[in-house]
Amino acid sequence: MFKEEERIKINKDAWNIVAPQFFEGSFTNLEYGMYAPSEEELNFLGDLKGKVILEVGCGSGHTLEYMARAGAGELFGVDLSTAQLESAKKVNSQFNIPITLIESPMEELKGVPRNYFDIAISIYALGWTVNLSKTLSNIFDALKPGGVFVFSWEHPVHSLLEYRDGKLVFKRSYVEEGYEKHESWRTVSIVMHYRKLSTYINGLIKAGFIIDQVVEETRIPENDTGEPNQWYSAEKARTLPPDLIIKSHKPDFNIG
């Protein structure tokens, strides 16, 4: 068993090593996952012009770049990886708007102001948290009343199944939550957590959020001919959603 701080340290070291693998191009649209509907279709964030936005787990900074190009007024990006933040700084050096990059675990969000943000977003990062309750409470506190929080993550069922001998088979139980250390994730050791869909939903409710929409739909290109035994594949996506997207908001206590 690893303490929370030990798990954070393992993952920080791992992401510092694999960061170059995620440094890719620019986003013309905001993608929530491999086979997920995009922001262009969902319009969860609305008009970004002038908005103050926090990205939790900003990684290489390409989502920040997308939001800067869309006219955001001020951006904050938080990540535990020094290497990822160095990439994010390079990607966003072209913009004149205020962009603050903070090295901090999402369980702490050190240096992030409270009641400040119109929008918080986390794309394929929230599930890395070692303490979901702390992280969601931090995000809730950072938002203004009425502020929107949107996150995507790998669907909890997706990681349970693998394609073997022409069929999908369960490799572990859905109801048993916890974590395990993978010794060779992208050639490094890293700690992954397993949570049920209800854990994310109930965590949002406990933190004070109001849930607006849960998305499990898939969008599979007709010309997708990838190998069915790949981790993300069209064959697998036709059976179960690879991605989970949830939109929620902080109540506006000034109403009523």
Rank of each mutant, 00 (worst) to 15 (best):
D118E: 04
P113M: 02
P98Q: 00
L48T: 03
S248W: 13
K9R: 09
D118N: 08
P228C: 01
L64N: 07
H182Y: 15
L160G: 11
A125N: 12
K167F: 09
E235N: 14
L204Y: 10
K51L: 11
L54N: 03
G33W: 05
L240K: 10
E216T: 09
L75I: 01
S159A: 11
I97R: 01
E162I: 06
F140D: 04
L85G: 11
L161P: 12
R186E: 13
E216K: 12
G166C: 04
L143S: 02
F44A: 10
G46F: 06
E65K: 14
H193C: 04
G127N: 14
S93K: 07
L30C: 02
G57L: 08
D224V: 11
A88K: 02
N202V: 10
G61I: 03
N29P: 11
R219H: 12
F151R: 02
P37Y: 01
E65Q: 12
E227C: 09
K236N: 10
N202M: 10
R114G: 06
S189I: 09
S81N: 15
Q84V: 08
R164D: 07
K144H: 05
V150A: 03
K236M: 09
L161S: 14
S93R: 06
K9S: 12
H249C: 04
E235D: 14
K134F: 14
S173T: 15
V148C: 08
M1I: 15
S104T: 03
T129V: 00
E55M: 08
D212N: 11
L168Q: 11
F170G: 11
K206W: 13
A207K: 01
L197P: 14
N254Q: 12
R238T: 07
E5V: 11
E177V: 06
L85E: 12
K110T: 07
I10N: 01
G73H: 06
K3Q: 08
L85V: 10
Q84S: 12
S233I: 02
K250R: 10
V188F: 06
K167G: 04
M34V: 15
L85F: 07
T187M: 14
A88S: 01
T218H: 09
Q213N: 15
P228Q: 04
T82R: 07
G203M: 00
I220L: 04
I8L: 10
I139P: 13
Q230W: 15
A88F: 01
Y174S: 03
T239R: 15
V18P: 13
A68Y: 03
H249N: 04
R219P: 07
S93H: 09
E107V: 00
K90C: 08
A68C: 08
V112A: 01
E176D: 15
R195P: 10
T239I: 13
S122T: 06
Y174D: 01
D252K: 13
L143T: 00
L132I: 06
R114A: 13
